[in-house]
Amino acid sequence: MVRKLRTDAAEALDGLLFDGMTIMAGGFGLCGIPENLIAAIRASGVKDLTVVSNNCGVDDFGLGVLLAGGQIRKMISSYVGENKLFAELYLSGKLELEFNPQGTLAERIRAGGAGIPAFFTKTGVGTLVAEGKEVREFDGELYVMERGLTADLSIVKAHKGDAEGNLVYRKTARNFNPMMATAGKVCVAEVEHLVEIGTLDKDHIHTPGIYVDRVLKGAAYEKRIEQLTTRTRSAEGAAAGEEV
């Protein structure tokens, strides 16, 4: 059996990183992001990256640290509103951006993982999204052609996993991770809980190990929240143990 388990993020990425590569990074905002692998990419100094991700973290966390380090040349994303540095770099011409409707981005990744080179969608017809792309009519409706996406490396994060690379995601932290795991030439997964082989319920495995090349147990997780809003508890609520 191929040994997939690695001791840490640096070892998990050993020999996989090179300048100019394309990386898919799972997560939605800061939810379900591979924190340890991102930190290891930052430490490696690899540069001129094209990164496929729903967004680019925040200024000092997640993929934002790669922006701050000048390591990203191009982003393929659907939302970038939480990152001021992203906006500054894009507006100054120092960062390329390929914007996608969110559902289109997800489908482009899924298509890439399934070996589908292109597909047609109504989303974006008649807008800037369709510029330079083939538009075709089907049953009296116009559709724009979108290409499937693949990457040199996919980095994903799961709640549980085993040494064979079988992965289980937790709730909304599943987001882009499952489809990205299928669309990279190599997939490296970090997990919060490493479990014994055979203990995962086979019906509950979201990403089968055949898609995962290397796996590690993440050392630590900050799990930041982008926008945290709380309210002051009333005296009655505090006495009753009301949660904020």
Rank of each mutant, 00 (worst) to 15 (best):
A10S: 12
I72Q: 03
D152H: 14
Q71R: 09
G148Y: 02
Y79S: 12
R233L: 15
Y169V: 04
G161H: 07
L67D: 08
E243S: 09
A238T: 09
V135I: 15
V156Q: 06
I116H: 01
I155Q: 04
G126V: 10
D19V: 06
G45D: 08
C187V: 02
E134P: 03
I23W: 14
A68T: 09
A189W: 07
L200K: 07
V144Q: 01
A10H: 07
A130N: 05
G26I: 08
L95F: 03
G198Y: 06
A9M: 06
C187A: 15
F18V: 02
Y143C: 08
L13K: 04
R73S: 07
H193D: 15
V51C: 03
E98K: 11
H206G: 00
R224E: 04
T232N: 10
E35V: 05
R73H: 13
A181I: 04
V65L: 02
V244H: 03
L194E: 09
R108P: 00
G115W: 13
I116Y: 02
Q71F: 08
I76N: 01
C56I: 14
A130R: 08
T22H: 05
N54A: 03
G27A: 08
G126R: 13
I23L: 12
P178L: 14
A130G: 05
I225W: 12
G32W: 00
